[in-house]
Simulated assay, not measured.
Amino acid sequence: MIIRAILVTIFSISLLFAVPLVTTASQVKTESGMAQKLAVLVDKAEFNSFHAVALQAGYQALNQLGHPDAKNLLVVTNAGYAKVDDQSSAPCLDALTAVTGCTVGKGNLLTVHSAAFTPLYFFVYDSLSGRAAYLEVDKNTKIGGTSFTQMLDKKDLFAYQAVETIMASKLIANPEIWDKKLKNRIFNGREFSLVSIANLWTDKAPADLMQAALFHDHFCPGVTAGYYLAKFLLDKYPLADNQSYHIIASPAWCKDDALQVMLNCTVGKGNMVVYPLADTDKQYLLPEAKDAAGINFVKNTGIYFMYNKKAKTGKGVVLGFDWDKLCKESGISFGREYPWRDNLQCDLWMNRHSNDYARYVTVIKEFELEQGSAPGDYIGPSINPWKKLDLWQNK
């Protein structure tokens, strides 16, 4: 009996990670189909309509891609964030694992941050062929009162479906072809988000950089610059005992989403605040700060504090990011005919050179906090942080 129990357990686990086979809708409902794989993760009594939605999506995507080897698969979705019929779509994640073998732990099941009212979508990518399938659930789908079996049989569940080749090398080599598809919104407006995430995943982007991009909902050079900045701070300005990071984002741009993920600084917790800096204000910055504000293509990133709240002591640093140097060394130019191509090329280059982050971060000024002061004392309705740091000329 013990041996039999062990064999049953091994068989169940093997079902979970096996390469999905061609399955009909009726087979999905039987214990010999995908439902049996789902049962390894979820008690059958808890099967619901969201499980059925994701089983349908995963099964259809694999069929459309010709059932590729599971080791080459990536699944990207906003399940867990999106709501359908005002209900959480989180159960979809278990079903996606059951049908594709992809898991959060293996890093090939990725959830993209999105608003709850965003349509629920599924994206399955085969990194070997470079082909991807996109399926988006009809926003008018009714989940409440619909059983698992009924949802498996539901037709016209997906409002958008598309299969495209999105391998970076092919898109970059033939930009005019992809540009037309992008303008036609073949993934209903999520083209660059999904293309950038899939290609940077294939390029083995670090897990924390992937997390930053998923929070931002796409890769872009600005997010990767934030990743560089966070690594620079952690390396060159590590926290001492009882210290925490505080940030004045001035101005705010894409890098701040990466900093939130990497350093756990958020507006809600009060350890990230934004001080807008208009282009017309840059003329009032002192010469040493003008590079930080975007003149000469060295973009300002903000003011960073390493602060001990209990002792009310700390230090700060003003940092910039040298886009001019990065563009010269990478050979990439911005503002050309296909902006998405420039961004994708830059994303890939920055990922492959992420260990050189310190080359592109510039230190504008280091300073000690005034005794007894806090980062919040450097910004306010009548407090210009640049003026307080003596980096501002009077108007």
Results as ranks from 00 to 15, higher is better:
residue 88 S to E: 09
residue 268 G to L: 07
residue 166 I to W: 03
residue 290 K to S: 08
residue 281 D to P: 06
residue 312 K to M: 01
residue 199 N to H: 02
residue 65 L to G: 06
residue 209 L to P: 11
residue 55 L to H: 05
residue 136 E to W: 09
residue 161 Q to E: 10
residue 171 L to G: 00
residue 203 D to W: 10
residue 213 A to Q: 08
residue 21 L to C: 04
residue 316 G to E: 08
residue 198 A to N: 03
residue 314 G to M: 08
residue 312 K to F: 00
residue 173 A to C: 09
residue 32 S to K: 09
residue 77 T to P: 07
residue 189 G to C: 06
residue 87 Q to P: 09
residue 242 N to V: 12
residue 54 A to H: 13
residue 350 M to S: 02
residue 326 L to T: 02
residue 40 V to C: 11
residue 32 S to M: 05
residue 214 L to W: 15
residue 9 T to D: 14
residue 212 A to M: 12
residue 157 L to Q: 00
residue 350 M to L: 04
residue 314 G to Y: 08
residue 283 Q to R: 11
residue 35 A to K: 04
residue 15 L to C: 08
residue 198 A to S: 03
residue 188 N to P: 07
residue 174 N to I: 13
residue 198 A to I: 01
residue 383 I to Y: 02
residue 243 Q to E: 12
residue 94 D to S: 13
residue 320 G to W: 00
residue 232 F to P: 00
residue 271 N to H: 04
residue 6 I to C: 10
residue 172 I to A: 09
residue 334 F to R: 05
residue 388 K to E: 12
residue 142 K to W: 10
residue 270 G to L: 09
residue 48 N to F: 10
residue 36 Q to S: 14
residue 359 R to D: 09
residue 31 E to C: 13
residue 322 D to T: 09
residue 213 A to W: 05
residue 249 A to C: 03
residue 323 W to D: 14
residue 47 F to E: 06
residue 346 C to S: 05
residue 351 N to G: 05
residue 61 A to P: 14
residue 189 G to F: 02
residue 290 K to P: 05
residue 353 H to V: 02
residue 251 P to R: 11
residue 277 L to F: 13
residue 31 E to D: 15
residue 286 L to N: 10
residue 165 T to G: 15
residue 193 S to A: 15
residue 101 G to K: 02
residue 132 A to K: 08
residue 164 E to V: 00
residue 149 T to M: 11
residue 382 S to G: 07
residue 84 V to P: 10
residue 240 A to W: 01
residue 202 T to R: 09
residue 23 T to N: 00
residue 236 K to I: 04
residue 102 C to Y: 01
residue 365 K to A: 03
residue 78 N to G: 10
residue 224 T to H: 12
residue 164 E to F: 00
residue 143 I to E: 00
residue 115 A to S: 11
